[in-house]
Nucleic acid binder design. Structure first.
Lengths: 346, 346
DNA sequence: CCTACCTATGTGATCGATCACATTAATGAT
DNA sequence: ATCATTAATGTGATCGATCACATAGGTAGG
């Protein structure tokens, strides 16, 4: 121990057993390996001009000391935080959670960390607090999960220079010309119903200020437009089964023969509403969901829905944010036909 | 701009418009406020002996420069990261996701950040990688979400001195004497079935190496023991509806009149299996779930289940980890009786 | 054979905050 | 009226890494 000077903190003066030793630093490794601290740094950063023997000496020293680079020091000196922030408002929903998990794995594979910041309230203040928090961590980018328009606005107002993407983002410019996946997915759902012969198709939409809801609504109207079907009936829910249950009643009152729900939870609510009203599904009413949550196949009847690849969306978000050239292609949504849809009676 | 010396990095030589200005530091604030950097630091840390006028001057300067403390610098110099790590394996499940969201809010309220690290695989290597990652960020503590025993073992082996808790943890020593919530909850479920007259109650358990599964299983056997009911039938699932569907068949083959499922998803699978086998629920078979996911009330029939307060668990985890004296009391689980349970036929 | 250049490594400054300690002014106690 | 004590603030070192630049040893070209 060549501690000539006592630095701040009650650093152990003597090598007391059990005293919590300061974690090894580059200097410790350097000393043990008989090189300079900079060489250690070079090993850490895979510098090309390093003799293999030297690298090995350093690696051995690292293992010996069970060295672990200090992320904070790294961030400070390089002014790169290698940190991605997640700005979220949706708590406990399947889709977002699945995306975030995949996103984190993808980010870590690239040496990035992921922090989350939930805007618990809908008020601008809580959104602001969350963004501000991410800024203090000098997040290099932000992924907005469950993007309401208001959140995106707040973010562009005060993003403090942090780039951001949403999970809905498109990948390459090549793909930029084609319609958004969620629009496509919604059209598939509506197309399926129309093909079965339905002409009175209602839409159980998500909250109006959600991007996803807007995109799915667009798909709904686009497809009906394309088929020159005039009938429209849209009721907004809040993604919950309870809201779907409520809203389905309204839609039924409008005389729909089929319902396209903005997500599977609301579809479940609709299923329940139909069963309570003794309306047979799919006999008298067809219902299509969106997302294909793992439970959808076990609803009664098994739900016809549109499958999304949430995990892939998370991975794409990372690639996009990091400006990678090879962004995985967005996988097209897939219509999963189960038992909740059939031709209309009349 | 008094940049007398060019520091490292291609810092703009001239004040070019649009050049990304270095963010303001304590020194910038200090200069503008006419105080020393240390005084600025004192304002940041709410030091008691500060003249109100001085504090105000500094605060004004901060606002003027839109100063934002640099978390990395703070961490480095204080050797306190103010960072809590989430070690997770469950992707996209309702309960964990809800807990994590609440946890994050609670942590941020205390000035802490939350990073996540998913052990995507079950293999020890990926668990190790996740833990190691959290260690590099010098996380001050780890909350294990969805704790499999193997994860906990790995963590105690190489936690690098980071304390950790699980969401299942008990709070105070005062509470330490009473049984775990999940055991209590499971007993409530079984008790409910037994009270209805069931004697052949099967358990659709979670994966054997999950703490939650183990606790719920304990509750099941404890309650049956207490009631001197000999019949036992346990089949393990993997929390998914699909596994519940599969396992329910086995349980039915054992001649059960009621099933206590380890979570609502598996209960849904069981519901489906019953309906496919033309077994009336609750007429011929009663089913109880666990968790009370938001959709449970909309299953067919509406599921009787045990409600857990996931958000509160997340908050408690933070308090516990931070060694706070006033840990919110664990709220006892609640039995929610709906339509999937009734007295047995015979 | 000497300059040119690349390879491999070392030295000291730097990032932005806190820490330890020094200093000065104001308040009390004797 | 004098010294001890506390309040309010300043100075310089420090955390652990990277950055910029310097230096020593090879290899190559003219």
């Amino acid at each position: 121990m060549t501690s000539e000077l006592q630095p701040h903190g009650p650093a152990s003066a003597a090598p007391v057993v059990g005293a919590k030793a300061r974690a090894a630093s580059v200097f410790d490794v350097a000393r043990l390996a008989g090189v300079s601290h900079q060489t250690v740094s070079r090993v850490l950063n895979d510098h090309p001009s390093l003799r293999p023997a030297t690298r090995q000496k350093v690696l051995d020293a690292m293992k010996e000391l069970s060295y672990r680079p200090n992320a904070a020091a790294r961030t400070l000196s390089s002014s790169r935080s290698r940190m991605i922030g997640i700005l979220s408002t949706s708590t406990g929903q399947y889709g977002p959670a699945a995306s975030v998990a995949a996103l984190e794995v993808a980010a870590r594979a690239r040496g990035y960390s992921v922090t989350i910041a939930n805007a618990d309230g809908l008020d601008p203040r809580s959104v602001q607090a969350a963004i501000s928090h991410l800024a203090e961590l000098s997040a290099e980018g932000v992924v907005v999960v469950a993007p309401q328009t208001r959140v995106l606005e707040a973010l562009s107002d005060l993003s403090f220079g942090m780039p951001f993407v949403t999970l809905q983002e498109l990948a390459t410019d090549a793909e930029r010309s084609r319609p958004l996946d969620q629009v496509v997915g919604a059209r598939m759902a509506v197309s399926h119903l129309a093909s079965l012969g339905h002409r009175r198709i209602g839409h159980l939409a998500g909250p109006a200020d959600w991007l996803d809801a807007a995109q799915r609504l667009t798909g709904y109207t686009d497809e009906l437009d394309a088929r020159a079907i005039d009938f429209r009936a849209v009721v907004n829910g809040d993604w919950s089964a309870a809201s779907g249950h409520r809203a389905a009643g309204e839609l039924i009152a409008h005389g729909v023969t089929a319902i396209f729900a903005g997500n599977d939870q609301m579809a479940l609510g609709a299923l329940k509403a139909a069963s309570e009203a003794d309306i047979a599904v799919p006999g008298e009413l067809s219902i299509v969901g969106f997302d294909d949550v793992p439970e959808a196949a076990f609803y009664s009847p098994a739900l016809t829905t549109v499958r999304q690849d949430f995990a892939e969306a998370g991975r794409r978000a990372v690639a996009l944010l990091l400006g990678e050239s090879s962004v995985p292609p967005s996988v097209e949504p897939e219509l999963v036909v189960r038992r909740s849809t059939a031709a209309p009676v009349a």
